[in-house]
């Protein structure tokens, strides 16, 4: 905070508080309006809601780290040494969520297959697996 006077930085803090509060309110508003709690029959597309809420949360995180935790005033090397490693999580998020989704698909597939009645009239193709099923397995 070396480059700001005491009064300025004090003001900045309360501005920051207002900012975080407003962003949080917007997030909640998106959740409520988007799901039709406020205006009857009005819905936002789910992807738009998710993207805007994730974006706003990331902005909040950025603000907390950069202003409240003073990252803005640290040397760039320090900031990068702390922030860059979190990038390693990006691939983890993609891979884990993809996995979760695939467990879901497989469970559904197994459930469907268990409920299926076997069609005896179908001619044997000589193959163990029906090629139609292979597509679903992903």
């Amino acid at each position: 905070m070396a480059d700001l006077s005491y009064e300025d930085s004090k003001k900045l803090v309360f501005k920051g508080m207002a900012l975080l509060a407003v962003v949080t309110l917007i997030e909640v508003a998106i959740a409520l309006v988007g799901k039709g709690y406020v205006i009857e029959g009005f819905h936002l597309p789910v992807w738009l809601m998710y993207i805007s809420m994730i974006g706003l949360s990331l902005y909040k995180a950025y603000f907390i780290v950069y202003e409240f935790m003073h990252m803005k005033y640290e040397v760039k090397g320090l900031a990068m040494s702390v922030l860059l490693p979190t990038g390693l999580l990006v691939w983890a998020v993609i891979a884990f969520f993809n996995e979760g989704n695939s467990w879901n698909q497989r469970r559904t597939l197994i459930k469907e297959k268990n409920a299926e009645t076997i069609d005896d009239t179908r001619k044997s193709t000589g193959s163990i697996i029906d090629l139609k099923d292979v597509k679903n397995l992903n």
Partner: peptide, 25 residues
């Protein structure tokens, strides 16, 4: 650096949460 490592602990939990949530109908 401690906070960075703690962030990874939470990341582990939240990513596990995401994976489980995605796996539920």
């Amino acid at each position: 650096y401690f906070l960075l490592s703690d962030a990874f602990t939470f990341a582990g939990f939240l990513i596990a949460y995401g994976a489980i949530r995605f796996s539920m109908p």
